[in-house]
Amino acid sequence: MPSILYLRSMGHEFPAFLSFAESEAVTARYLREVSDDELARYDAILVPAHIDQRGLARREAALTRFLDKGGTLVFNGHLVYPMLGLAPFVPSQGGHKDDLIVESVNAHPVFDGVDDYDISFRRGVSGFYGRGGNPPPAGAIILHRMKTDHAPLDWFWERPQGGRILMHAGNTMWMYLGDDTSAARIAPQLLAWLKATSGKRAACDGKCAQRAQAQTLAQPQNLLAQAA
């Protein structure tokens, strides 16, 4: 089974997710407890929004090694420290309720059955899930975007050099685990997807570019087109 590391939040950890992750054999450690070599050894790493991102960016060499050997990085939050060649967070303009609606662009197993409404609103309030985007690299597949300005809120990227990044530029995606909506599907689907696809199956032996291209061609239908 793939080895999965959950880097614990500095604050506002979601106890239900911690229990769930540990019950699913995910290793939960604080960043300060994990050496560079250990980081590089895992098959998947979960990064919550409440992480010491400055400290994580200082581990860029280890994260690069982790990705190069086929690791899957699940990153939550606004990217503000340069790392992995990614561009920094751009907030969406406008803070009104309807400026912060999220819409699906492409399907992904982690978000299967998750209704756009349930990540756009909580008790009728918008903006919890995200309010901007971490700009995607070329070749990334946009999964969710802000409806008004199309900010790239969630994307999935298979790096040409190896490894994969599932990016969510907002509040930690597994915070919905206890919600009574379809958004509660995200956390279990995330772990199921990682178990099914990370580790040896994600390593690509230099064939990542071809694989990424094949995946792009095989993408499920655009949900917007489907809705239209």
Binding site: M10, A49, I51, D52, Q53, R54, L79, V80
Partner: peptide, 11 residues
């Protein structure tokens, strides 16, 4: 005192 989180940076 900056804990390294994105919001510490942004603030």
């Amino acid at each position: 005192l900056d804990g390294g989180a994105y919001y510490h940076h942004a603030t």
